[in-house]
Design a binder for these strands. Structure first.
Lengths: 104, 104
DNA sequence: TTGACATGCAGGTATTTACCTGCATATCTC
DNA sequence: GAGATATGCAGGTAAATACCTGCATGTCAA
């Protein structure tokens, strides 16, 4: 996994919105997605390119249209690597802080 | 939750490294953390400030030292909002793509 | 109290980023 | 084929970002 690509892709609100839009209806075209965004089509294309580079979105051409599909795998890998790790220690981490605040 | 702050904080490799360092040993000082980073102390301070603004790290002063602690709560919220949502539809999303590739 | 140590604060710069406009290409429909 | 439609590509700009250096402040320990 390329964590950097995935996190950088998720760091922009427009791109998270695109993922949400695709979650509501998968396989939308560039034009359809643009209808929900308040920016030029070319800007949306760039955002989708970043999502595709991070492997969060896959595309298929159908004639003159380009269909966009979510790929949930990188999100799951992010979870495995970055969320579960800290979650396991959740209680103990908070305990560390509490103990420090109380002056040990 | 301020998703933007959390994702932007996670979008930098240095900041993810800092979280890993704190996971190995919670409550480290700025100086301790800097030993593992190849950059000026002031740069690390900025990164820690961003992590703190995102509520991923909490700090406690002890004399002239500043101790840093991980707060895993925002990561869990990110998981709830951005990973589980897509995970639930994981199989169906892949099915959508497969069907499209096969020409429906 | 004085020197060493840990951190804070104020700029300065090069790169990246998120937009845009303008034009080109490819595909459908009539 | 011609016009409409969907997308691609090539710059151009303003703002954000990730570094840095230099100096100030606060704390410990002898």
């Amino acid at each position: 996994m390329h964590a950097d690509d995935v996190f950088k892709a998720l760091a922009d609100p427009t791109r998270r919105r695109l993922l949400d839009l695709l979650c509501e209806q998968n396989g939308q075209t560039l034009g359809q997605l643009c209808e929900h965004l308040d920016m030029a089509r070319q800007s949306a294309t760039q955002h989708l390119g970043i999502l595709e580079a991070a492997n969060l979105v896959s595309t298929v051409r159908r004639g003159r249209e380009k269909l966009h599909f979510i790929n949930p795998v990188p999100l799951h890998e992010v979870y495995e690597r970055w969320v579960r790790k800290f979650e396991k220690q959740r209680l103990s981490l908070l305990h560390d802080l509490k103990r420090e605040l109380e002056g040990e």
